[in-house]
């Protein structure tokens, strides 16, 4: 079921087109990633989705209703983790989460219960009584997430929730996203880290200059730019002994390069010829010291589509 339907969405800031005619459907239960460099328009798109920014053109439906009309019904089912930390430094963690939970209609004992649950979920339950003033960046980020969770939203929108934090907190956050999703939450996740998108997302929209330039699962995206994968073979014996021409006859092999004692063999992705390649080396009495299979990553995809790197 479509949980969000975006049609022909455009938002301009003066002459700058921050969101350029985007159409997009988010399906219930998926983790949808928006991957793109800084300034691509991810946050603008999120802000439009949550009603913070007015659109110039286009329609958005969430939970089957036009955003803007029946606003509160829709809002209650969404949890937003904003890109910029949005927590009160002079309120304790529990007060922060409880306050926002209260705004979503939670009352009485339930507020504290749900707030503690959310804090526990992000690993901050022991800090519940402390104010985040002196927290590390990672802890603040986690509190920032907890504030969006206590009201049990069906759709969670996370805008670059892992920017500038330590690896441990990052791992914690990525795992929490997976857990939330396994509990039935739909997640929209924006990032400029391709590893995160690849690791986390069922589908990814690659964004650049306000446009979604490609969309699909990580594998689908990769196959967009290349239908080949590369096998890198490290040899223990000198290279001169290898008859490269023989390798070329193996089914699927497209290209071969070599230098010193490594050979890179590029093959068609839909043909599995790994066993044949290995047996070619052993039958020719050549020792393999190491094997590395290199498939294109989302960085390659972005590079191919835009001619630029994701992170400059």
């Amino acid at each position: 079921m479509a949980i969000v339907e975006i049609k022909d969405l455009t938002k301009k800031y003066g002459s700058l087109v921050a969101v350029d005619n985007i159409s997009l459907t988010i399906v219930e239960g998926e983790i949808f990633g928006l991957l793109g460099p800084n300034g691509a328009g991810k946050t603008t798109l999120i802000n439009i989705l949550t009603g913070l920014v007015k659109v110039d053109k286009g329609t958005i439906k969430a939970f089957g209703q036009d955003i803007g009309k029946n606003g509160d019904d829709v809002k209650r089912q969404i949890g937003l983790v904003p890109q910029d930390l949005a927590i009160y430094e002079d309120l304790t963690c529990l007060e922060n989460v409880s306050f926002f939970a209260g705004l979503y209609g939670l009352r009485g004992r339930l507020v504290k219960e749900k707030a503690m649950e959310a804090l526990d979920f992000v690993g901050l339950s022991e800090k519940a009584g402390q104010a985040p003033k002196k927290f590390s960046g990672g802890m603040k980020r986690r509190l920032n997430i907890a504030c969006a969770l206590a009201h049990s939203p069906r759709l969670i929108i996370m805008d670059e929730p892992t920017v500038g934090i330590d690896p441990q907190s990052r791992k914690h956050i990525l795992n929490s996203v997976k857990t939330l999703n396994s509990r039935g939450c739909t997640v929209i996740y924006t990032t400029h880290y391709m590893e995160e998108a690849e690791d986390l997302c069922d589908r990814i929209g690659i964004m650049d200059h306000g446009k979604i330039i490609a969309m699909g699962s990580s594998n689908e995206l990769k196959s967009l730019v290349t239908d080949q994968s590369t096998l890198i073979v490290n040899l223990s014996s000198p290279l001169e002994r290898v008859n490269i021409d023989g390798l070329k006859e193996i089914k699927g092999v497209v290209d071969i390069w070599s230098d010193e004692n490594t050979i890179s063999i590029s093959s068609s992705r839909d043909i599995n010829n790994l066993d044949k390649i290995i047996s070619y080396f052993s039958s020719n009495d050549i020792h393999i010291a190491g094997l590395e299979s290199k498939s294109p990553n989302l960085e390659t995809v972005f590079l191919t589509l835009t001619g630029r790197k994701l992170r400059d």
Partner: peptide
């Protein structure tokens, strides 16, 4: 200004308030 600076104003605005 606090709500604007801390961006908590945005959180308030996306909530059903």
């Amino acid at each position: 200004k606090r709500e604007q600076l801390l961006k908590t104003g945005n959180r308030l605005l996306v909530s059903p308030v």
